[in-house]
């Protein structure tokens, strides 16, 4: 049976303000989904809710991973169950070396039963694997010694997120604007990298405002989110249309959501 991540009728509030208003989405392992929508429509909120950010309260709806209740799990349990979020704005952890952080993370995720203080992946084995992945992603080897996201350029941060995904090999990954802040060449490299590290072996939700990231990862499905609801789902042609023509047609088709949106931003 293929792994399945299913989100049904998800409602999420931030500081008591409803942001997601009934999102449903099912991803099978091996599929690529694109999620597009204007700024503030709730894309990042969906990613945070799936990983269990304590500031994002799920007020109703379900998230299930192969039938298991994801909402009952702690964020680290979700990560160990195979969920991954590439952050739109990765967080710096000063003083913690990328390699040490990733070794710890990979040890936990590959051995979900691991208790704090138990053996980590042997250093040699881990180093070898990390070096290989960094070569593959054309990331300078000096990177491993740097502190997590500290002083990284926008592009370096996004590449580091891809590197983490490559090392942690999740079942499902949400890539939140992994192309923003990258120059044209870097987006192409990122797009290739995602394909190379085996996007097809995962289920992927790519959140993006652009088309380039999808170049090497043609989506099986594209979804449009507006005002906290998925209002349209289609194939790759939908992503292409949005990229060319923007959200005007979609907005015109959903006047009530546009009103909601206006009311929200007026606050």
């Amino acid at each position: 049976m293929t792994d399945t991540l299913s989100i049904s009728d998800l409602h999420v509030s931030v500081a008591d303000k409803p942001i997601l208003k009934g999102v449903s989405l099912t991803i099978h392992r091996g599929e690529i989904h694109a999620l597009m929508g204007p700024n503030g429509s709730g894309k990042s909120t969906l990613g945070f809710a799936v990983l269990g950010h304590p500031g994002y309260e799920v007020t109703s709806g379900r998230i299930e991973l192969n039938g298991r209740d994801v909402l009952a799990m702690e964020p680290h349990e979700r990560a160990r169950a195979g969920l991954f979020l590439a952050f739109q704005r990765p967080v710096a952890i000063p003083g913690v070396r990328m390699a040490d952080f990733l070794r710890h993370a990979a040890s936990n995720i590959r051995n979900p039963q691991r208790k704090e203080g138990e053996e980590l992946i042997p250093m040699r084995q881990f180093r070898k694997e990390l070096t290989e992945k960094m070569d593959q992603l054309k990331i300078d080897s000096e990177f491993a010694r740097r502190y997590v996201n500290e002083g990284f350029s926008g592009g370096e941060m996004k590449r580091a997120e891809i590197l983490q995904m490559a090392m942690l090999r999740p079942k499902f990954a949400i890539l939140d604007e992994t192309d923003s802040g990258l120059d044209v060449d870097a987006v192409r490299l990122a797009s290739q990298s995602i394909a190379e590290i085996g996007a097809r072996e995962m289920g992927i939700l790519i959140i993006t405002h652009h088309e380039q990231l999808l170049e090497h990862n043609p989506p099986d499905f594209a979804h449009v989110i507006l005002g906290g609801k998925i209002v349209e789902t289609g194939g790759p042609e939908l992503a292409a249309e949005l990229h060319k023509r923007g959200y005007d047609r979609i907005r015109a088709a959903h006047p009530e959501i546009v009103e909601d949106e206006a009311a929200l931003t007026a606050h």
């Binding site: 990983l51 269990g52 950010h53 304590p54 702690e74 964020p75 680290h76 979700r78 990560a79 160990r80 991954f84 979020l85 952050f87 990765p90 967080v91 710096a92 952890i93 000063p94 003083g95 913690v96 952080f101 990733l102 710890h104 993370a105 990979a106 936990n108 995720i109 704090e116 502190y147 997590v148 983490q164 942690l168």
Partner: peptide, 26 residues
């Protein structure tokens, strides 16, 4: 920072310990 580390499979405790260790690293 804690949430970011938890998303990478670290427990809350491991996350806090890691962040404190990082604080002293300099």
């Amino acid at each position: 920072q804690v949430f970011y580390a938890r998303c990478r499979g670290l427990t809350r405790n491991e996350a806090v310990r890691t962040i404190v260790a990082g604080f002293f690293q300099q």
